[in-house]
């Protein structure tokens, strides 16, 4: 009973023998690709500074990842480190010193991702953690917005700030060339910005957060490919718009309009690209709704009652921290059962 050997190697794999079309690197690189229009728009608005800052934060992220994975599993080329770098760059002001952007990328990957074991295991969005670190470490530099649009006097080729400040040294800031963000105007000066400017992005702000339309189109592409869970941005937009509408209806002079809330600051970028990071968002759809609504609520709370003019980053980080708990309480109802898997 000895079977005759087959002429060609036959592989024995476990079922299923078919494999779906998506793969992790493909998802990651698609996100990078869908960020390209946003990068292009940012370069259009902020000149070469935007590109430099993004490159610096990418370098920080990738160098750190490289340092960690030399001896571990090779996740360097899956594109996730690139996403962190690009997203971090997009949240920084255009005149940000490059050495600081590098530090942010390195911190985000090192302490936000590799310490947890690398790809897929982190709790906090690495880009936002890097951004939060920079915000805490260099609060002045990160809130120094260069003027844009008509207020920008220099040519497109001019750097928008002291990008080339020496490492560990303070950047030189020329006060006349800086301006406040629309949210800053709203919070501290009680002046509004035109909705069209907000939509098209010709306002002051971080490199990538200014053009809501481009971000929405990229996000729609990713949602169509099922590379992001549409419920997260949808619930963020709905809750922000809902809460803002109620407040606006109560006191229009004090609370800004929902349109303003949606299109100002980093909300679009955060809701579409950061909150939807698969690793740091809930796995269940119900959890995604809770997550998004929580972010929306926190964004509005921080913007209106908090000490900061912008709260998207903190809102997402705080909800990131809550994700394991949300996952726990939103276990799906298993077919044929009416009780939850585990109650608290």
């Amino acid at each position: 009973m000895t079977p005759t050997p087959h002429s060609q190697p036959i592989q024995v794999m476990a079922a299923p023998h078919f494999k779906g079309p998506d793969s992790t690197p493909q998802i990651m690189w698609s996100v990078v690709a869908s960020l390209c229009p946003v990068i292009a728009a940012s370069i259009y608005f902020f000149g070469p500074s935007a590109l430099l800052v993004i490159l610096a934060s990418c370098a920080g992220a990738i160098v750190t990842e490289w340092a960690f994975v030399r001896s571990g599993p090779r996740t360097l080329f899956d594109g996730s480190g690139m996403i962190t770098g690009v997203l971090l760059g997009l949240t920084l002001p255009p005149g940000f010193p490059l050495w600081m952007a590098f530090v942010g990328g390195a911190f985000g990957i090192g302490f936000g991702k590799m310490i947890f074991g690398g790809l897929g295991q982190n709790i906090f969005n690495p880009a936002l953690l890097g951004r939060a670190f920079l915000q805490a470490a260099f609060p002045v530099a990160i809130t120094t917005w260069s003027a844009s649009g008509e207020a920008w006097a220099g040519s497109w080729w001019h750097l928008r700030g002291d990008n080339f400040a020496l490492p560990l040294m303070s950047p030189h800031v020329v006060d006349t060339l800086t301006g406040a963000t629309p949210l800053g105007f709203m919070k501290f000066e009680h002046t509004a910005t035109s909705n069209l400017d907000l939509l098209l992005g010709s306002v002051n702000g971080s490199i990538g957060e200014t053009s809501g339309l481009v971000i929405l189109v990229s996000g729609a592409y990713l949602a169509w490919k099922n590379f992001l869970n549409w419920r997260i941005p949808a619930s963020i937009f709905l809750s922000v718009a809902g809460i803002a509408s109620v407040l606006h209806a109560i006191d229009a002079a004090r609370y800004p309009s929902p349109i303003f809330m949606l299109f100002s600051g980093g909300l679009m970028l955060g809701a579409v690209f950061m909150a939807t990071d698969m690793v740091t968002s809930p796995v269940t759809n119900r959890g995604c709704w809770i997550f998004g609504i929580g972010i929306g609520f926190l964004v509005v709370s921080i913007r209106i009652w908090g000490g900061l003019s912008e709260g998207v980053m903190y809102a997402i980080l705080l909800m990131n921290a809550l994700v394991p708990f949300i996952n726990r309480i939103t276990q799906p109802r298993v077919f044929g059962t009416s009780v939850k898997v585990r109650s608290l």
Partner: peptide, 20 residues
């Protein structure tokens, strides 16, 4: 220690800096 133009890393003296 480093002269005037040193950019202090404020985070180090804030609570997160303690943990980190």
């Amino acid at each position: 220690l480093f002269g005037d133009s040193y950019e202090p890393w404020v985070v180090m003296i804030l609570p997160p800096g303690g943990f980190l």
